[in-house]
Design a binder for these strands. Structure first.
Lengths: 337, 337
DNA sequence: ATGAAAGCGCTAACAT
DNA sequence: ATGTTAGCGCTTTCAT
């Protein structure tokens, strides 16, 4: 077995209280005993037991992070940010893959409760009433990433409406007039509705008519959704010169469909995405897209959570992160030449 | 505060021992008291404290997973598999992002030791002597994913030599004779050397000369590495008709370089990758590649670890996972017209 | 069938 | 400056 504080105390001929003080950097001992104890620790290879500590301190120095899909490219970048911030703040992170299932989410929440995590980061999904109740029960701080909620929970995200609005304006500024959108779900209050609304409003602001003929809606935001959507859109809007896709995966799916149909991007069809995943710069042509600073968002959420846990903050600050449009090769400027 | 076992006992008018028995499904009580206690639990919303349990049971039901880069596309798929297996086995997983730094790795290992995790999964990196010593100290099972080691540690991985050999043969069977390779590092005993050796041996087996002119080596396996490697290779091997890249990211980087140089893939240049990341089917043209079953590997490693922890297995079984070559559009068959 | 009590490894209040 | 002791919430003998 691992040596305990008792063993160290015995070895160094002091009481366990003294060892504890030295280990925790509290005052109350001579340099001499300190050295003795440190030697004992060294000799025995003593490691304080975080479990015992947690029991008494009511602090586990651990947070839980819930993702609908941990292997998603979006999640994995956010996770890296969270992990980084947590680690810097002295916390470990337990990952939970909810697979967007309510049951699994509740199960995980209960688990995190039993494990007495000090805080929770909830990502990319809607906060159901049921979850919120558990949050309250748990009495630990919660911060949302890439989501908002009807409840009073701090969040870190970008303004989806604004991002979509600007993406659309970008296309318009490049001279496009027949613009289609590959949208998400009308049920989705985060990545779905706001992005579609932003698209529509930008069009109208610039005097371009909007009819629902120029938009498809999708259950998910995957490659396949985008790939299937493009032909549909082309059908309804044959003169379309540009597409705004509500996610990079969909944008790249649309690109694949275009390739298949023999439509050249960006010469014949411009495409702009949303997210700025790593793949955006790897595909051909490199994708112009609305960049969400995913890692920074995770980092930021982690930092806020840590502050909240340490009680430095009383009320939670939410943060809107800045998005940018990163220009690559998938959009053609119609005004030139 | 959360109610404790004491509260439940008081509420139900029994001793804490009885509550404990009921909660843990041990024998020794009447149906009647069981009901009473369950009602108390329900009424109070009691959740057993996993920390207290861990202290006494010496089991935390938690495992640690170390990745060089959690946001890597490779890691994230493996992680999903691990998390899945762990969860099924009743374990939570703590993720650690080592950033390939030895110091950070050691720090994390110490942390996991303090947190008394029940087991460790170590991914995609070389096991240094220093790490191995800590493993031994910790006295917990360890399983390697996508790595092997000089030590007697169970691993789950595919045979890199074999995979590279087959990829090269595939190219040869398609009629290619001038084949280049974008390789990894000679310092890397996993993804580096074996894949390069496999390439070389396949060439020689089929009577094609091998000179180091037809290979580049790289520090990393990223998009940029591949992108920079292709022109170098083309320089040395102007008649090259096919490239084998030691990773999908590099393959896609090579593709990007080819596009830039006006070389058409696969018409003028065939490319085969290694990994089968999600991007492989999203890029254009879709990438033919050696598929590693990443999620399954993670899952498998998780399962082995759980078995080891539960003591069902005495000695660790290592597993070579089967790879397959998934044919998409990036390789041209030279034999057909 | 049930309860009392010891103790897991630690911290913190209270002596000395 | 150092030690003694009472828990933290639980499991597990050992009695009854």
């Amino acid at each position: 077995m691992n040596p305990t504080i008792k063993d160290v105390a015995k070895y160094a001929n002091v009481s366990i209280a003294t060892v504890s003080r030295i280990v925790n950097g509290l005052p109350g001992y001579t340099e001499d005993t300190k050295k003795k104890v440190q030697e004992a620790i060294e000799a025995l290879g003593y490691q304080p037991n975080a479990i015992a500590r947690g029991l008494i301190n009511k602090r586990t120095q651990t947070i839980g992070v819930l993702f609908p899909e941990v292997s998603g490219m979006l999640s994995s970048e956010v996770l890296e940010g969270v992990e980084n911030a947590a680690h810097d703040g002295g916390f470990s992170v337990i990952v939970c893959n909810t697979t967007s299932s309510g049951k699994r989410t509740v199960k995980y929440l209960r688990l995190l409760q039993e494990k007495r995590v000090d805080g929770i980061i909830f990502a990319s999904e809607n906060v159901k009433e049921e979850y919120y109740k558990i949050f309250q029960e748990m009495q630990v701080p919660v911060v949302l990433v890439s989501t908002a909620s009807q409840f009073n929970l701090p969040f870190v995200r970008v303004d989806d409406y604004e991002g979509a609005f600007r993406a659309t304006e970008y296309l318009i500024q490049k001279g496009h007039k027949q613009i289609g959108m590959i949208g998400g779900s009308f049920e989705d209050p985060i990545a779905g509705v706001p992005r579609m609304k932003g698209f529509q409003d930008a069009l109208e602001k610039h005097g371009l008519d909007f009819t629902d003929q120029q938009m498809t809606s999708n259950e998910g935001y995957r490659f396949q959704n985008g790939k299937e959507s493009l032909p549909l859109l082309l059908d309804k809007l044959p003169l379309m010169t540009a597409v705004f896709a509500a996610s990079d995966e969909m944008a790249i799916g649309a690109m694949a469909a275009a390739h298949q149909l023999g439509i050249r991007v960006p010469e014949e069809l411009s495409i702009i995405g949303y997210d700025n995943l790593k793949i955006a710069e790897m595909c051909y042509p490199a994708l112009t897209t609305v960049s969400q600073p995913l890692k920074e968002m995770g980092q930021s959420a982690g930092e806020i959570l840590v502050k909240l846990i340490k009680g430095k903050e009383k009320e939670a600050e939410s943060r809107y992160m800045p998005f940018t449009i990163v220009e690559r090769q998938s959009v053609r400027d119609l005004r030139k030449k």
